[in-house]
Amino acid sequence: MVKNALQAQLLKAGLVDNKKAKKLSKQAVHEKRTGESKEAEIKAKIEQDKLEKQAKDLAIEQAKKAQLQEKELNATIVQMINQHKIRNTDGEISYQFIDENKIKKIYINQQIYNALVAGSLVIAKENDGYAILPKALADRINSKMEGFILVNNSQSNDTATTDEEDPYAAYVIPDDLMW
């Protein structure tokens, strides 16, 4: 009852006995049956891995697109600042403001100083320096991306509220003190 020629030859040579031959044939049949189900599992696993890879690639692509869009927006804003900044602002009056938790100082003329204090002009961060811009442009820039406008005195004037119980409420402290 040997199923293939190799088993018959092994039996004749005395290398295996009848019991061992039956066991090997049963094992081969079992492997053949379970091998087919393993193929289906392997195919399903490959398909699942392929879907996961596609999802991962899509997420990476979307992240790259978002980074590229942010870079483009950043470049557009820098270009807007460069085109619309007010030139000829040099003067002998110093104006101090905070940038990244450090006090910075720029020297401007009296007209620009008055407009900054009044809130009609703002200070924006430009590449490695600072630019003075009209408030309307600053509002457009802030609507697109935060972080470029450093000084906007029109906002601080709007949000300044006094407490009714404050004994010094009648004494207004000006923002533009010159020392």
Rank of each mutant, 00 (worst) to 15 (best):
K144Y: 03
Q27A: 13
L116M: 05
P167V: 07
A131L: 02
I106K: 02
S156W: 07
I86D: 02
V16W: 06
A136R: 08
I123C: 00
D163R: 07
Q48F: 06
V2E: 14
K12H: 09
T161K: 15
T76W: 08
S25N: 11
L177T: 09
I141C: 02
R33A: 12
A170Y: 09
E146Y: 11
V117I: 15
Q7W: 11
D163W: 07
D176V: 06
Q27D: 13
A124G: 11
Y130T: 00
A28M: 08
K104A: 04
A21I: 11
S156I: 15
P134I: 06
Y168H: 08
D175I: 09
E100N: 15
I103R: 09
D90T: 10
L150I: 15
L137R: 02
V78Y: 04
T34M: 14
N157Q: 14
P134F: 03
S154I: 02
V151G: 05
A170H: 09
T161I: 12
D17E: 03
N153F: 02
K3I: 04
A5L: 14
K32C: 03
N153C: 03
E39Q: 08
E31G: 04
R87W: 05
N114A: 12
G119Y: 03
K71E: 04
E36Q: 10
E47K: 14
I106P: 00
N142M: 13
N114K: 13
N82L: 07
E41H: 05
S120V: 08
E39T: 04
I173R: 10
G14P: 01
T159I: 14
N142I: 04
A170G: 12
N127A: 10
V78L: 14
Q7G: 12
I60A: 14
L11I: 10
L6F: 10
L133H: 02
A13M: 06
A115V: 01
Q9P: 02
M178L: 13
F148P: 00
R140E: 15
K32S: 09
L11V: 04
L137Q: 11
A55V: 09
I93M: 08
D139V: 12
K12C: 03
S143I: 06
Y95Q: 01
N74L: 02
S154P: 06
P167I: 06
Q27L: 14
N142W: 05
Y171V: 14
K144S: 11
S94N: 09
L73K: 12
Y95G: 02
Q79N: 10
N74I: 07
V172H: 12
R33I: 13
E164M: 08
V2I: 15
A5S: 08
I46N: 10
A169C: 07
N18T: 05
S154D: 10
K38A: 03
K12M: 03
T89Y: 04
A115G: 01
D17V: 00
N157H: 15
I98D: 01
D90L: 07
I141P: 00
V172A: 09
Q62T: 04
V117T: 10
K20W: 01
T159G: 04
N109I: 00
K32A: 08
K56G: 00
K22S: 11
